[in-house]
Simulated scan of single mutants.
Amino acid sequence: MAFAITAQWVNRLAEAHQVGGLSDESTRLGRILLIIVDAVGYIPFEPEVANLFFQYISDRYEWASVIVSSNKPFGRWGEVFGDDIVAAAMIDRLVHHAEAISLKGDSYRMRGRNLGRVPTADTGE
């Protein structure tokens, strides 16, 4: 199993591509039976990187497990990938043999922080 935020995965692929080692990196990553891609949509992809990431997911989705987390609904993934067609193709592969779970409610990280309230002014009196 390997866990990384999306930016780390795409940087790994982009760096391997730049030095001509994408095939070797894909082979190494192919040995990992489960990858977890966290925070898809937090930072938009550059088009070339979006294509590398799409190709990686496309190459492995039939035979190895992928868990993806995102705070964006699928309908907004075109913004993330910079292209509605690439986003649709990515979603198609991710949900083909998948269970999609939508979580609603407050963030686990933000619980108990009272960030929804406007603070009152302290007059010091």
Score class of each variant (00 low, 15 high):
1 M>W: 12
1 M>R: 11
2 A>P: 00
2 A>C: 12
2 A>R: 15
5 I>Q: 14
5 I>M: 08
6 T>I: 13
8 Q>Y: 08
8 Q>T: 14
10 V>W: 03
12 R>I: 07
15 E>K: 14
15 E>L: 15
18 Q>C: 11
20 G>Q: 10
20 G>W: 04
21 G>D: 05
21 G>T: 03
22 L>E: 08
22 L>Y: 12
25 E>G: 01
26 S>W: 00
27 T>H: 04
27 T>W: 03
28 R>S: 03
30 G>N: 01
31 R>A: 02
31 R>F: 00
31 R>T: 00
31 R>Y: 01
32 I>Y: 10
33 L>A: 15
33 L>H: 15
34 L>P: 14
35 I>F: 08
37 V>I: 15
37 V>D: 12
38 D>L: 06
38 D>A: 10
38 D>Q: 10
40 V>G: 07
41 G>H: 05
42 Y>C: 05
42 Y>R: 03
42 Y>G: 01
42 Y>L: 08
44 P>V: 12
45 F>G: 10
46 E>C: 10
46 E>K: 13
47 P>Q: 02
48 E>P: 14
50 A>P: 14
51 N>R: 15
51 N>D: 13
51 N>P: 11
53 F>H: 05
53 F>R: 03
57 I>E: 08
57 I>S: 06
58 S>I: 12
58 S>Y: 14
61 Y>A: 05
61 Y>T: 05
65 S>T: 10
65 S>R: 03
66 V>F: 03
67 I>D: 12
67 I>N: 09
67 I>G: 13
68 V>A: 03
69 S>V: 05
69 S>C: 12
69 S>N: 11
70 S>R: 04
72 K>C: 11
75 G>R: 14
75 G>H: 13
77 W>P: 00
78 G>P: 00
80 V>L: 02
81 F>P: 01
82 G>E: 02
83 D>R: 02
83 D>S: 04
84 D>N: 05
87 A>L: 06
90 M>V: 15
92 D>S: 08
92 D>R: 06
92 D>H: 03
97 H>D: 01
98 A>W: 06
101 I>C: 11
101 I>P: 06
103 L>R: 04
104 K>G: 05
104 K>L: 03
106 D>V: 04
107 S>A: 02
111 R>T: 00
111 R>S: 01
112 G>Q: 06
117 R>S: 00
120 T>A: 07
123 T>V: 11
123 T>A: 13
125 E>N: 13
